[in-house]
Amino acid sequence: MAGVGLDQPFFDDKNRAFWILQSAGWTGYFILRSLSGFSNSMGLVWLVHTALLTATGYSLTLLMASLFRRLIAMKPIWTLVLSLAVVVLAATAFSIIETWSVATFLKPNLELGPRTYLSAILLDFALLAAWAALYYGINYFLLLESEIKQRERLESQASTAQLAMLRYQLNPHFLFNTLNSISTLVLLKQTERANAMLARLSSFLRYTLANEPTAKVTLAQEVETLKLYLEIEKMRFEDRLRPHFKIEPETIGARLPSLLLQPLIENAIKYAVTPSEDGADIWINATRQGQGVRIEVADNGSAEGADLSASPSTGVGLANIRDRLTQAYGPAHGFATQENDKGGFSVIVEIPYETGDKDT
């Protein structure tokens, strides 16, 4: 099939498709008219007459196609009017040639006059109008298909840009606080702690830059990144920050947008750990539920996190997470916030279970 060009869409090469359809159409016209003549005992001379008409129609439609390629770019009203005029002129020429052929090959005694030359114009007009309608129908379909593909590309690019924008909206407070803590450690001449904190910050930022903003990572990779982030924060808060991970083995291969959970941890630190002298516990739980994965980030703070989505100071916040989930999964996800039985705040994310190769 590849040898005859059927390994690609038929209209990928529009020029080739035109010649194939043009030749096939007029070949069919020649065969049908020939069979019609033979069925009426017209003799072999009918083939000469039919061949002449076929060549005439083939040539006229080539000229029409050349004109239509220019007319199709005009305003619809001008395309319609001028195309109709072209079809009328072509049908007139076709009728004159057909009448001359009849008088020459089939009816030598036929008296020729203006009315005689136009005797076949209605049938010829119908034939050429049908050809023109098919020509415009195919080309408008191809134009529509091209517009749809272009719109899909633009929508895809817009979606990718939005995902990238959302992904890059990391809270600048985190970076500011971390650098401020490093500066303080340097002033206190605690160089080992400062170097350790700087190394962890460097690793975390390297991860954020190395991964494509629209890419998905495994839950195992996301958890490792969260642990790296928490190690940085734990150097600031020490024992006041108490993270707990409970990740079921069945979920570690699930894929999700990179750094999806980091803003949730950051908000939990801001609203649960920072205000309390005793700090707070933060739980990150992931469980497999049917064809999906349920991820919960919970704390035992004061449940003030319920205001995150409305607060402009939370950086990406809950609104950003909702947008990223919508972009990544459409309606096939769940997102909920609630006060939990520990007296704190919980964010629950439910996503389809996807792996790198296929969904399961």
Rank of each mutant, 00 (worst) to 15 (best):
L144P: 00
L128F: 11
E339G: 14
V273Y: 15
L144C: 04
L154C: 00
L185A: 07
I348P: 04
L308E: 11
P257G: 12
R167L: 06
A164D: 05
P108E: 04
L226V: 07
N300A: 10
E296D: 13
L84Q: 08
G253I: 13
H244T: 12
L89V: 12
I77L: 11
S101Y: 04
D341V: 06
A280T: 14
W19D: 02
W19L: 03
L228E: 09
V293C: 07
L6P: 01
N40G: 04
A298M: 13
L44C: 07
L261Q: 13
R206S: 10
L143H: 04
G343P: 10
Q338Y: 10
A310F: 10
L67I: 07
S66M: 05
I96P: 00
I265Y: 08
L134R: 01
S83K: 06
T61R: 01
G25F: 15
E296P: 08
L82R: 09
K216A: 05
A268P: 15
S23K: 06
N177F: 05
T54C: 07
A196P: 00
F176K: 04
L325K: 01
S156Y: 04
I321W: 02
L261F: 13
S346N: 09
V45H: 09
E111T: 12
A210P: 02
N267D: 15
K189L: 05
N211M: 12
G3T: 12
D239A: 12
I96C: 03
Q221E: 11
Q162K: 08
D359W: 13
E147I: 05
F11A: 08
S183N: 11
S302W: 03
V186D: 02
R200F: 01
V87M: 07
D281A: 13
A220S: 05
A93Q: 01
K358L: 09
R70H: 07
T54K: 02
K234E: 09
A132N: 08
K227Y: 01
Y135A: 02
A164Y: 01
G292H: 13
I348C: 09
S311V: 03
G37Y: 14
I31K: 09
G343S: 11
D278N: 15
I77K: 05
Y329I: 02
Q8A: 12
A298H: 10
L106K: 01
H244E: 15
I295V: 14
G301D: 11
T50I: 06
E350H: 14
F30W: 15
Q289D: 15
I247C: 07
S39P: 12
F125A: 01
T337I: 10
D7F: 11
M1W: 10
A132L: 08
L32A: 13
L80H: 06
S23T: 15
N267L: 12
G279W: 11
R294H: 14
G43L: 11
L163F: 07
S39D: 15
A298N: 13
W131R: 00
W78F: 06
K107A: 11
A91L: 00
S41T: 14
S119L: 01
P172A: 12
A306F: 14
P172F: 11
E111W: 05
S66E: 07
K246G: 05
L6C: 08
Q190N: 09
A55F: 09
A85P: 00
A280K: 14
F68L: 00
Y229P: 03
K358T: 09
S302V: 03
A215R: 06
E354A: 12
Q162N: 05
